[in-house]
Design a protein around this nucleic acid. Structure first.
Lengths: 150, 150
DNA sequence: GCTTGTTAGTTACAAAATCAACTATTACTC
DNA sequence: GAGTAATAGTTGATTTTGTAACTAACAAGC
């Protein structure tokens, strides 16, 4: 009665469902690193991502970040405010278009970025270490593909 | 000035960072399916997961689900309440331990499960179709491994 | 140059997630 | 078997996210 016979093909298990697996793997793999930027700098994930974008790509606008990382503009806006409060970045109105704000990391912000980046690098190596070089290369390629489907 | 020379190894790109890639892929790959259970049944992700666990594994307790899916008990509790309100499941106090509730899908709940499961199956096939059979098999294996690190 | 439309970013309100404290029940220990 | 600890699940307060409406600036059409 609990599991009736109408389900012929019982070969489809939840544990195999890609979106589920992806979410579980994403959550699990984020946990440890999350602890670092949270405990060490009191940052939220979106804040960390914005910081990392600025550190990685240099001066950007909120819109650029939102597009590149697919983060909604309200989230970016709030993250930028918080990072500004903590003096990790500064905003300067663009002269050519005064709606736009150019965001730049401060010296402090850049130091935080470098510190977290080092941790990220090590942590990434640790994760990749679960697999062979070829495998982790392939994994990245596949994930990139999934992330850029639409 | 924007990107100074102190960063020797600039080979570590944010786009390569596994937790970032995983999160992006997870979000992207969940979107389309999310629309279905949201639009069609007004369900939230946790609710869908609880429903799917019950459909997939039969009778379970809230604790079982929480452990297996790594969902916090408050989230499970609220999801169960909502599913009960919508008459997708029923609770019965365990006779051996009256703290415990056995959760079972109703006929309606099971119908919803079967419908969504069919969609999930098709969607999974679509995602897997981005890769070769070997690749997607490997992908699942790697994701499972990442999801079960700790 | 004025109306209309679009864009960058913010703010306000509603929905959901997180965290801590709570109830009720069972298990452990002496 | 009384007292303490542990467990299943719920509830309430706080934080974070999501959605919509908003401001300010620019762009286009006429």
């Amino acid at each position: 009665m609990t599991q009736d016979k109408t389900d012929k093909k019982d070969d489809f298990d939840l544990q195999e469902f890609l979106p589920y697996l992806l979410n579980r793997a994403a959550e699990e793999s984020s946990l440890e690193f999350q602890q670092v930027y949270k405990d060490r700098y009191g940052m939220l994930r979106t804040e960390w991502r914005v910081l990392f974008h600025l550190g990685n790509y240099g001066e950007m606008t909120a819109k650029d970040i939102g597009e590149r990382a697919k983060i909604h503009k309200t989230k970016v806006s709030r993250a930028v405010s918080k990072l500004e409060q903590r003096r990790y970045l500064t905003r300067t109105r663009s002269l050519s278009d005064r709606r736009v704000e150019e965001l730049t990391l401060t010296t402090t912000g850049h130091a935080v970025y470098r510190d977290l980046r080092k941790v990220a690098e090590q942590y990434d190596a640790k994760l990749a270490g679960l697999f062979s070089q070829d495998e982790s290369d392939l994994l990245r390629k596949m994930l990139w593909r999934l992330a850029h489907m639409s």
